[in-house]
Amino acid sequence: MSKTLLDIKNLRLSFFTPAGEVKALNDVSIKMDEGDVLGIVGESGSGKSVTAYAVMGLTAHPGKIVGGSIEFNGHRIHEKTEKEMRKIRGNEVSIIFQDPMTSLNPVYTIGNQICEVLLLHTQLNRQQAYARAAELLTLVGINEPEKRLKQYPHELSGGMRQRVMIAIALACEPKLLIADEPTTALDVTIQAQIMELMIDLKKKLNMSIIMITHDLGIVASMCSKIVVMYGGKVVETGTVEEIFYNPKHEYTKGLLKSIPKLDADKHEKLVPIEGTPVDMLNPPAGCPFAPRCGKCMKICLKKMPEFMNISDTHTSACWLNWKEEAENLKGGNSND
């Protein structure tokens, strides 16, 4: 029986900008057990990063949680003070960011930046921390750790910097590692290496990971559960198999269709999802995906779709699912 690690319930988060209230998260609910590798998928602006930052209490000004709750590892995050959050960040939950080139401070050595988090959250002294830092570098696959500790970020390649970021994130053995598009800024070959490293580390340390990405390929190779987000809402959740083999939401279906296939016919056109993303200042009353949906119905524009349980682990928020369900019942009834 797996313990629930993260329970986000009906989270609503807005950014109060001079232009108005940008409703970044509109009733988001995500649940995660220990040992899960959860993939959050969606395009830019869907709210996936905002959700992750909210878990860590890193919501940027002028953002505020306006409703719902976040429970992580027994903590009620949405009620914590900044001081209390500092003890949790880097310690029980840590994050690695998208761009390793800019995520490390250019004027301090690698050693300094790794030891910083160790000295902050553990009882190690400076010497011990330094030794541990060297261990961590080896763990993430960086050779000659002693030499690297004394180097500056600009002396390392992109892939190596991301490994350093991972080392910093793992230093205090967190229960949850959040990876916000960790490979988007890297070359494809390096991407593969980093992914391999993360899978390896997960097995070794039995970590829980939240993988935020727009790349379905990564999700397929790493994740056990998937959450699909669009326009500040969760539109579908399920296991990897359910999502890939039985997608129920039109957006999910569109995403899967738009992946270019190596074995496709030479003249086969790529299938994009038409239209532009939602205006978060004035989000529509109905389904956020409606204007771009090929099968949009009148009700989709008027009312927000409600979640339907397709299985114990698979939910989807789409009026088409309800219509289908109703038709199945009717068909079933008429057969009686």
Partner: peptide, 19 residues
Amino acid sequence: LDVSDFLPAEESEKQSMVV
């Protein structure tokens, strides 16, 4: 529910949602 709501939406209705 209103059954008529489940009819496909017009293109114009969709456009009005796009800003």
